[in-house]
Simulated assay, not measured.
Amino acid sequence: MAESTTPTPLPRSIGAPATRALALAGITTLDDVRGVDLDELLRLHGVGPKAILVLRETLAATD
């Protein structure tokens, strides 16, 4: 039987505006973030340097 994995949600510490902006861009899980250039996400209204830092740290910790 294949192992099913539950998608890892975005860290709550990125804040509500960043979470909404990412969701509007189709990014709702940490796995979605892995396929995107984080510097490009800074262009989204609501995603700031703090959110990017948290995402980078979270990705590094889960690799």
Rank of each mutant, 00 (worst) to 15 (best):
M1V: 12
M1L: 13
A2E: 12
A2F: 11
A2Y: 11
E3G: 07
S4R: 14
T5D: 12
T6Q: 13
T6G: 05
T6N: 08
P7D: 06
P7K: 08
T8K: 08
T8P: 03
T8I: 10
P9E: 01
P9K: 01
P9G: 01
P9M: 00
L10Q: 00
L10R: 00
L10V: 00
L10N: 00
P11A: 07
R12K: 13
R12G: 12
R12L: 10
R12E: 14
S13T: 14
S13W: 06
S13M: 09
I14P: 00
I14M: 03
I14D: 01
G15A: 08
A16C: 05
P17K: 04
P17Q: 02
P17A: 09
A18K: 04
T19K: 10
T19C: 05
R20V: 15
R20T: 15
R20K: 15
R20W: 13
A21S: 11
L22T: 04
L24C: 10
L24H: 13
L24P: 01
A25E: 07
A25V: 03
G26W: 02
I27G: 00
I27L: 09
I27Y: 02
T28H: 04
T28A: 05
T29N: 05
T29D: 07
T29M: 01
L30M: 12
L30T: 04
D32K: 03
D32H: 11
D32N: 09
D32F: 05
V33D: 00
V33G: 03
R34D: 10
R34K: 12
G35S: 11
G35K: 08
V36H: 12
D37H: 11
D37G: 09
L38H: 06
D39N: 14
E40Q: 14
E40S: 15
L41V: 07
L41K: 04
L41G: 04
L42A: 12
R43Y: 08
R43Q: 11
R43W: 03
R43C: 03
L44Y: 04
L44C: 07
L44K: 03
L44T: 05
G46T: 02
V47Q: 00
V47W: 00
G48H: 07
G48F: 10
P49F: 07
P49R: 14
K50L: 10
A51Y: 01
A51I: 07
I52P: 04
L53H: 12
L53G: 13
V54K: 04
V54T: 13
L55D: 04
L55P: 08
L55F: 06
R56C: 12
R56A: 13
E57D: 15
E57C: 11
E57T: 15
T58A: 13
T58E: 14
T58S: 13
T58N: 09
T58I: 06
L59S: 09
L59E: 07
L59Q: 09
A60F: 10
A61C: 06
A61N: 13
A61K: 14
T62G: 08
T62D: 14
T62P: 00
T62Y: 08
D63F: 11
D63E: 15
